[in-house]
Design a protein around this nucleic acid. Structure first.
Lengths: 251, 251
DNA sequence: CAGTGGTCTAGACCACACC
DNA sequence: GTGTGGTCTAGACCACTGG
């Protein structure tokens, strides 16, 4: 008769306490032993709930010390990293996009694994060229699970931010993991970006979706490294801040 | 007598198996029950190890199905960007280094500009090959202002972390700015890393020094993207202000 | 059906922080 | 000291996947 796992309920309860202010920032949360007694459960589900909240950045704390409420927001920071459009606009430049292809097709094994669906399930893929002041800067290959992506067939992908549109349609893309590496430009990349095949590109792969849930989007974005770089400011013992930079020549 | 927790050892062992190809991409890893029996432990530490690998993106898979190897490259989170040695050690792998050159020379215009000194001022340059379990992974070109770098002539750069040594000598390298892009391997990179010239490399340039003060180090580190990637998780990131600069200060 | 991972119980010992 | 979280044992039941 249990609708959801205990650790999920416990985590949700603490999240609610933080959001409503019943637990304020800086407050210590009840000890694991206390929570276990309140819920009449063992420590295991309590610990799993706290591990989730820790991964979400909501609570902090170390060994020997009680866990402490660290923050209240769940999605807004780093939002600039989620949307190319808003990032470029924020620099006072003009973002643009040319949609090369939008298609519904069946997921291959790689995509299915990343999105946590079955190979053969329907996905919506969008291939777009993103520009800054009209200059090609990035090739975006986004792949959405069908439930989220099908709304894109009602949307003019040349008109602006896909993210902004999908959010108005109720999609939750508040959480993401970005993996950054380098690849060579394939013929498609080269043609779209106006560079020679074989040139190095800065690649950002992104898994986005609701916090704690299965991802709704897998994306492979390839930037011209002479136009866009990523920077991190890192002070020891404090959280790093990440941003995306355009190189000066462009500004 | 336990040097590190069991789950850490188990995770390190599986990471090593993946890195060396003993487990290939797409392969299923042994079941939790098998691992528990191999290690003669209960399921709890095994599960914790797998949870860590899952968070690192190394393995995937769902309920009812065995976990599957998803990738081979080690994802370096931005939080640990301060030291290659400590990052690799923390994964249970063995960091190594081979010093190709250490020299005191006069700063050229580019270096001087980055470090905020005059062209012609003395700097100490170190060129090192960094390895993971003996495998070449990164080429490091570090350049220190003389006041900080001269201590390195008292140091065996093959013996370990330059950062750890300089800090014992009183250097303050607590704050850094990292700029990430992609470049092609030059002949030196290619020879050291054992790859073909022209392959793409993931580059991290770093300005490090005391918080708020002038930088003491400028470094150009080039990673093999098949072995090392960078990751950032904004699943509810902590709140600090995300700096957005209209004009980059580094580059 | 047997095997898998997901969840949970009810204990236990430890290192560490604080008083 | 006492209390905290970190780790671990040795069981158990469940939902799901696959043959």
């Amino acid at each position: 008769m249990r609708l959801s796992p205990l650790h999920t309920q416990i985590a949700a309860d603490i999240r609610a306490a933080i959001r409503t202010g019943r637990l304020d920032i800086g407050d210590p949360i009840p000890s694991e032993a206390q929570l276990a007694q309140q819920w009449q459960v063992s420590r295991a589900p309590v610990r799993q709930a706290l591990a989730t909240l820790r991964a979400e950045g909501l609570i902090g704390g170390g060994p020997g010390k009680p866990a402490v409420v660290r923050g209240r927001s769940l999605g807004q920071p780093f939002e600039t990293f989620l949307s190319f459009s808003s990032w470029v606009s924020g620099l006072g430049l003009v973002p643009g996009q040319r949609t090369v292809e939008i298609a519904r097709r069946r997921a291959d094994a790689t995509i299915a694994d990343h999105l946590g669906i079955e190979p053969g399930d329907a996905v919506v893929e969008v291939l777009r060229l993103r520009t800054v002041d009209g200059e090609p800067a990035m090739v975006e290959r986004s792949c959405f699970v069908d439930a989220v992506g099908r709304a894109l067939f009602d949307f003019d992908c040349d008109s602006g931010s896909i993210y902004a549109f999908l959010i108005t349609r109720g999609a939750d893309l508040s959480s993401a993991r970005h993996t950054i590496d380098a690849v060579v430009a394939d013929p498609t990349d080269a043609a779209l970006l106006g560079i020679d095949p074989g040139r190095p590109l800065l690649r950002e792969r992104r898994l986005a979706g609701p916090a704690g849930g299965p991802p709704s989007e897998y994306s492979d974005d390839r930037y011209r490294p002479d136009l866009v770089t990523f920077t991190i400011d890192n002070a020891a013992a404090s959280a790093p801040a990440l941003s995306r930079h355009a190189v000066p020549e462009l500004i």
